[in-house]
């Protein structure tokens, strides 16, 4: 019923949206893979990062992409500190408690932002916000194309870091066997906090990639949380290539089901796939081992 051109555009839209999903899921899957916790504060942290970009643009005139110089280390430090000083000590390593602590953090972040910025939905206007790349009859949004490449770059860097660096090796060791890693002298608490910081830093990048075309209000992060969970499961919990492929896949599924079933009911497509994957192949679609 739709022309091939529209279908192609929908797929491309899905890939562009999905790449940002992938980046958000990347942080989540990393934290899950190492700490084995589901971080409910992930969405609220994304919101905080987006507000940081908004403020840096408004107050210091920083371009959203340039703002990463500040926000990426800033969120890494914040994530590190929160895991080290709050989540770790308060949760006593218990799953149920970690859940409550991250939930508590989400409530705190979201409402602190509400008290500070109020409830208005804000966006920033950058000169290239409406720029497009013309491919035949298609108009591809420049900031969203940049986002795709940004995400690929971050995923590659993260993968290299985990594979090659000493800290990366320590992270993988902790993820595999916590007690064993501790025995060979790895500071597990430090590695946990570094991982958490990396997860938050991914969100800082995602915030900068989103802000030129998206908007921010104190609740906006919630819009991405469920979809990020879905991707983490699809890709196999803890798998970086899985999160990347899962994000792109979900983006396209959402885009096409939105086109054919309507945006509202189309959301069901994601969850049905999610349930089916869990029931049939809980280790994820993209081959990560349990």
């Amino acid at each position: 019923m739709y022309s091939p051109e529209i279908l192609l555009t929908a797929v491309l839209n899905g890939l562009m949206t999905g790449s940002v999903y992938a980046l958000i899921a990347l942080g989540l899957t990393l934290v899950y893979g190492v700490l084995h916790i589901i971080n409910f504060a992930h969405g609220a942290t994304l919101t905080a990062a987006m507000f940081a970009v908004y403020v840096l643009h408004g107050a210091a005139g920083l371009d959203p992409y340039v703002a990463m110089i500040v926000t990426v280390p800033g969120l890494f430090a914040l994530g590190y500190a929160v895991q080290r000083l709050v989540i770790g000590p308060a949760s006593h390593g218990d799953d149920g408690n970690i859940l409550l602590v991250t939930l508590g953090l989400a409530i705190i972040i979201e409402n602190a932002l509400l008290a500070w910025f109020r409830s208005d939905t804000r966006s920033i206007d950058v000169p290239y916000g409406f720029s497009v790349i013309e491919v035949g009859t298609l108009f591809l949004s420049l900031p969203r194309v940049i986002a795709v490449f940004g995400v690929l770059l971050v995923a590659l860097l993260l993968w290299l870091f985990l594979a090659r660096s000493t800290t990366g090796q320590a992270i993988r060791a902790v993820a595999k066997e916590k007690t064993g890693a501790a025995l060979v002298g790895i500071d597990v608490g430090h590695i946990y906090a570094v991982t958490f910081g990396l997860g938050a830093a991914c969100l800082a990048v995602a915030a900068s990639l989103l802000m030129p075309t998206f908007l921010v209000n104190p609740r906006i992060g919630n819009a991405f949380v469920l979809v990020a969970f879905t991707i983490v499961v699809l890709g196999g919990m803890g798998s970086i290539p899985g999160a990347l492929l899962g994000g792109l896949f979900i983006g396209v599924v959402e885009s096409l089901s939105g086109l054919f079933m309507g945006e509202s009911l189309g959301q069901i497509g994601i969850f049905l796939i999610f349930i089916l994957v869990l029931l049939i192949r809980p280790t994820g679609l993209f081959g990560a081992k349990a």
């Binding site: 529209i6 929908a10 906006i220 819009a223 309507g262 945006e263």
Partner: peptide, 20 residues
């Protein structure tokens, strides 16, 4: 008649259908 949820993460497809 095109329905969409609140919040929506992307309105590209709505725009696409309008274009068609």
């Amino acid at each position: 008649t095109i329905a969409h949820p609140t919040p929506s993460r992307d309105m590209s497809n709505v725009a696409l259908r309008i274009r068609a």
